[in-house]
Simulated assay, not measured.
Amino acid sequence: MILIVIWELAYKFGGFPSMVKVLERIIELIANNTLEIAILISLRRLVIGFLISLILGALIGLLMVKLKYIRDSLGEFIAGLQSMPNVCWVPFAVLWFGLNEKAILFVIIIGSVFAVSMAIESGIKNFTPIYVRVAKMAGARGFSLYKEVIFPESIPVILAGVRQGWAFAWRGLIAGEMIASSMNGLGQILTEGKKYNDINEIVAVMVVILLLGFLIDKLVFQKIEYAINRKYGFVKA
């Protein structure tokens, strides 16, 4: 309700497009299947890129945990790379891969992999030492120590990093698609709206992107986080 009021005030006094016009444009995009196709293409890229970033991020994070010289040499560098906006990687992607699918996937992966790796490294490294000592006294060693003690305690930090990585991947997807606008997707519709000075179409896609991000976080990540936290006793059943 508050957002609707703010929108109406922006429309009347700030030159923002009418909510009615934006909704009409969304309906038009749905009616001609443009929006449905764009969403499916964008989500496919997003899932592929994010899964790759999870695998790479986990490997980098575990290496940083196990090998001190890698953590000392790469830790601050990776933290700096994580802070870079996704759009900074777009020129590199275009130069290396051209305007194609690989360039978009690269921007998605490079934008989220560091958040995942830093979360895994931070979560595993900053465990409570007394829990580990008690587990070792009980006979836990090697993999069982990680499985039963270190990993469960690290879960909240890791999950927060994974959600942050997903947000970065989402931003990277749109940035990549806007540059490689011939590859379809939500970014292409945004680019076409800019090309034809169609503010209604631009805002319509922005609304769709916002809703998709909210729904994915609510229906996927929050449910996964709740289920895992409940399994390990971080929340009451």
Results as ranks from 00 to 15, higher is better:
46 L>F: 01
58 A>W: 03
237 A>R: 14
37 I>S: 02
218 K>L: 14
98 G>N: 06
157 V>D: 02
221 F>M: 02
93 A>K: 05
136 K>D: 05
218 K>A: 14
189 I>S: 03
13 F>I: 03
234 F>C: 09
87 V>I: 13
183 M>A: 10
186 L>N: 04
181 S>D: 14
232 Y>A: 06
94 V>T: 02
122 S>G: 11
195 K>G: 12
74 L>W: 09
188 Q>D: 01
130 I>P: 00
102 K>E: 15
108 I>H: 03
76 E>C: 00
228 I>Q: 13
197 N>E: 01
25 R>M: 08
130 I>W: 05
221 F>H: 00
7 W>Q: 07
41 I>V: 14
137 M>T: 14
119 A>W: 13
81 L>A: 10
145 L>N: 07
144 S>C: 06
96 W>H: 04
55 I>H: 01
51 L>M: 07
67 L>R: 12
65 V>W: 07
13 F>N: 06
21 K>Y: 08
15 G>N: 06
33 N>D: 09
237 A>T: 13
68 K>H: 11
122 S>A: 14
55 I>P: 03
207 V>I: 15
147 K>V: 12
162 V>T: 03
87 V>D: 06
16 F>V: 02
64 M>Q: 13
67 L>A: 15
181 S>N: 15
36 E>N: 07
229 N>T: 08
94 V>K: 08
65 V>Y: 14
110 I>H: 04
211 L>T: 15
70 I>H: 09
194 K>E: 08
180 A>K: 00
142 G>R: 03
4 I>Y: 11
152 P>Q: 08
13 F>T: 06
84 M>H: 04
159 L>W: 07
3 L>K: 12
146 Y>K: 05
218 K>R: 14
131 Y>S: 13
235 V>M: 04
101 E>W: 07
80 G>T: 13
236 K>Q: 12
157 V>E: 07
85 P>W: 02
122 S>F: 07
169 A>D: 02
218 K>E: 15
34 T>Q: 10
19 M>C: 10
98 G>D: 06
152 P>N: 10
213 G>E: 08
126 N>G: 10
86 N>E: 01
62 L>M: 09
81 L>K: 07
197 N>L: 07
120 I>R: 13
118 M>F: 11
106 F>D: 03
174 I>T: 13
148 E>H: 11
184 N>H: 07
69 Y>G: 12
158 I>P: 00
26 I>S: 08
164 Q>F: 11
7 W>A: 04
58 A>M: 12
200 N>I: 03
